[in-house]
Nucleic acid binder design. Structure first.
Lengths: 122, 122
DNA sequence: CGGTATCCCTCGGGATACTG
DNA sequence: CAGTATCCCGAGGGATACCG
């Protein structure tokens, strides 16, 4: 798993702390959402998130798998094929992720405005 | 959100992207939650999150204020007094934050287990 | 198609001390 | 009490190349 030991330990008091540790990787929530939409293959998932490198997508998928949010199936064939599916736990967070997505969509104008005011925005 | 017709998504349009930019600072969601609980003064908020330095708490509060999630009131008196309140927009995200917190609480055992496996905590 | 190996760099945020 | 000024670190990821 992890090669280096963390210098700064993870706090694990409340539910929000726990969630942040496992779900707040940059693309994890997106991945769960897309997998929930039925997009299960790594290549497809990467196409949905072209801003992230392939390596990062794999890293986050592996992390989600280790944390029990998705399961991975590897088909022994050519060309190679792999599929990710939501576990029961992964499925159970979906409604909250969707709620976040909907909230963001509904407040798109406000959010885009405040984000564009931040410094390093192109 | 949609699933179809998006070969080349140039979008920072996705609600999940927008939300991440504005709410996924390490302590922002906690701060919104506590402010929603009626804990409005900086000192009190810092006591709720002793793992974060005072400077970081202030940074995140300022960011939340700039992004329209909280409003700040400074009372011109001695000793100094300041209070943060949720704006309408800030208030509207609260249910989702609460949902996340409840989910984390309900799945505490699982989350603590997977977190402790990947990291040296405490 | 799928996954790794290296390298490198950003930048969020930790610690501490100071001012009004 | 509230906020700032410095300094600094390290974990997360971006880029790229390579392998089954």
């Amino acid at each position: 798993m992890r090669l280096k030991e963390r210098k700064i330990p993870i706090q694990q008091e409340c539910g929000l702390d726990l969630i942040r540790e496992v779900l707040f990787g940059k693309w994890k929530i997106h991945l769960l959402y897309y997998i929930g939409q039925g997009i299960m293959r790594p290549g497809q998932l990467h196409k949905e998130i072209p801003e992230a490198s392939r390596r990062v997508v794999n890293m986050q998928l592996k992390s989600l798998e280790e944390d029990g949010f998705v399961s991975k199936t590897i088909y022994d064939q050519k060309p190679l094929k792999a599929e990710y599916r939501l576990t029961y736990i992964g499925f159970s967070v979906l409604p909250i992720i969707t709620a976040f997505g909907n909230w963001g969509d509904n407040n798109r104008e406000h959010l885009k405005r405040v984000i564009s005011q931040k410094v390093n925005f192109l």
